[in-house]
Measured scan of single mutants.
Amino acid sequence: DNLVIALHSYEPSHDGDLGFEKGEQLRILEQSGEWWKAQSLTTGQEGFIPFNFVAKAN
């Protein structure tokens, strides 16, 4: 599964970004460059996240 966990909170700064809290679990939908499309397992919302704010969940 493409599950990751947030290492830091992220406040969206552009339309289409997905905000999240530290410790939140996300599902990665697309990996492309430094911005990945993800879905929050907490809110169900989708958007782009900075890849270096998350780590693979085990």
Rank of each mutant, 00 (worst) to 15 (best):
54 V>P: 03
6 A>F: 01
53 F>I: 10
51 F>S: 15
24 E>G: 03
8 H>Q: 12
16 G>L: 08
34 E>W: 07
15 D>G: 10
30 E>K: 08
24 E>I: 02
32 S>P: 06
50 P>M: 00
2 N>L: 10
30 E>G: 09
27 R>A: 08
31 Q>P: 09
41 L>P: 07
47 G>R: 03
17 D>F: 09
27 R>S: 05
37 K>F: 09
37 K>G: 00
15 D>R: 13
18 L>A: 04
31 Q>E: 14
40 S>G: 02
34 E>S: 13
26 L>A: 00
19 G>T: 07
32 S>N: 15
3 L>C: 08
22 K>E: 12
38 A>P: 02
51 F>W: 11
19 G>K: 11
20 F>R: 00
12 P>M: 04
5 I>D: 05
42 T>W: 09
11 E>H: 10
23 G>F: 04
21 E>F: 05
40 S>F: 01
4 V>S: 07
45 Q>G: 07
54 V>D: 00
11 E>L: 10
28 I>H: 00
5 I>Y: 15
20 F>G: 00
51 F>Q: 14
47 G>L: 02
6 A>N: 00
35 W>G: 07
36 W>M: 12
50 P>F: 01
17 D>A: 14
53 F>D: 04
35 W>H: 12
5 I>E: 11
33 G>S: 10
1 D>E: 13
46 E>T: 15
18 L>C: 01
43 T>Y: 01
9 S>A: 09
38 A>D: 00
52 N>R: 14
6 A>M: 04
37 K>W: 11
2 N>A: 02
29 L>S: 06
47 G>M: 01
15 D>I: 09
33 G>R: 03
56 K>D: 11
53 F>W: 12
17 D>Y: 15
49 I>E: 00
24 E>A: 07
30 E>Q: 10
13 S>G: 08
13 S>Y: 10
5 I>F: 12
15 D>F: 11
28 I>Y: 06
49 I>F: 06
25 Q>C: 12
50 P>L: 00
48 F>M: 13
49 I>L: 07
25 Q>F: 13
33 G>A: 06
6 A>E: 01
53 F>E: 05
25 Q>A: 10
39 Q>A: 07
25 Q>N: 15
8 H>R: 15
46 E>N: 09
42 T>M: 12
18 L>W: 00
51 F>E: 14
6 A>W: 00
58 N>S: 05
52 N>H: 10
56 K>R: 12
40 S>A: 06
12 P>E: 02
9 S>M: 05
28 I>E: 00
57 A>F: 06
42 T>E: 14
21 E>V: 14
10 Y>I: 04
9 S>W: 00
28 I>A: 04
52 N>V: 03
45 Q>V: 10
10 Y>W: 14
42 T>Y: 11
35 W>E: 07
5 I>S: 06
43 T>M: 02
33 G>Q: 02
37 K>E: 06
56 K>G: 11
2 N>P: 03
53 F>Y: 15
15 D>N: 09
3 L>P: 03
32 S>E: 15
25 Q>P: 08
11 E>Y: 07
36 W>S: 06
23 G>D: 05
23 G>N: 13
13 S>A: 10
39 Q>I: 07
18 L>Y: 03
4 V>D: 12
37 K>A: 04
31 Q>W: 10
21 E>H: 14
53 F>V: 08
8 H>E: 12
34 E>C: 08
30 E>N: 13
5 I>M: 08
27 R>I: 10
6 A>C: 09
13 S>D: 13
20 F>A: 05
19 G>V: 05
33 G>Y: 00
15 D>E: 14
8 H>K: 15
26 L>Y: 00
32 S>R: 14
39 Q>C: 06
39 Q>G: 03
55 A>D: 12
31 Q>V: 07
26 L>G: 03
28 I>F: 00
51 F>A: 15
27 R>K: 11
11 E>V: 13
35 W>I: 13
19 G>E: 06
34 E>T: 12
21 E>N: 08
16 G>S: 10
2 N>T: 10
37 K>N: 05
40 S>C: 06
32 S>T: 15
7 L>Y: 05
29 L>N: 00
52 N>M: 09
39 Q>W: 02
52 N>A: 09
46 E>G: 04
38 A>G: 05
30 E>L: 04
1 D>C: 10
25 Q>L: 14
49 I>T: 04
13 S>Q: 13
46 E>H: 06
34 E>R: 14
54 V>K: 00
56 K>F: 12
4 V>K: 09
54 V>I: 06
25 Q>K: 15
29 L>K: 07
52 N>P: 04
39 Q>M: 10
55 A>H: 08
21 E>L: 11
23 G>L: 01
47 G>T: 01
17 D>G: 13
2 N>D: 10
57 A>M: 10
9 S>Q: 08
5 I>N: 09
56 K>W: 12
7 L>P: 06
3 L>Y: 11
51 F>H: 13
7 L>C: 07
19 G>A: 13
33 G>N: 11
17 D>C: 14
32 S>A: 13
30 E>R: 08
27 R>H: 13
56 K>Y: 11
26 L>D: 05
24 E>T: 02
38 A>C: 06
55 A>F: 07
31 Q>K: 14
48 F>D: 04
55 A>M: 11
5 I>L: 09
52 N>F: 04
9 S>F: 02
16 G>D: 12
28 I>C: 03
28 I>L: 12
15 D>Y: 12
22 K>S: 07
57 A>V: 14
51 F>T: 09
22 K>C: 07
37 K>C: 04
40 S>N: 11
45 Q>P: 04
6 A>P: 01
53 F>Q: 08
15 D>W: 05
9 S>E: 09
4 V>R: 08
29 L>Q: 06
13 S>H: 10
9 S>L: 01
33 G>E: 05
3 L>H: 05
18 L>E: 02
41 L>R: 05
53 F>T: 09
31 Q>C: 12
33 G>H: 04
50 P>T: 01
4 V>G: 06
41 L>Q: 10
49 I>S: 00
7 L>Q: 11
45 Q>H: 09
27 R>G: 01
40 S>Q: 04
38 A>V: 12
30 E>W: 05
28 I>K: 01
35 W>L: 13
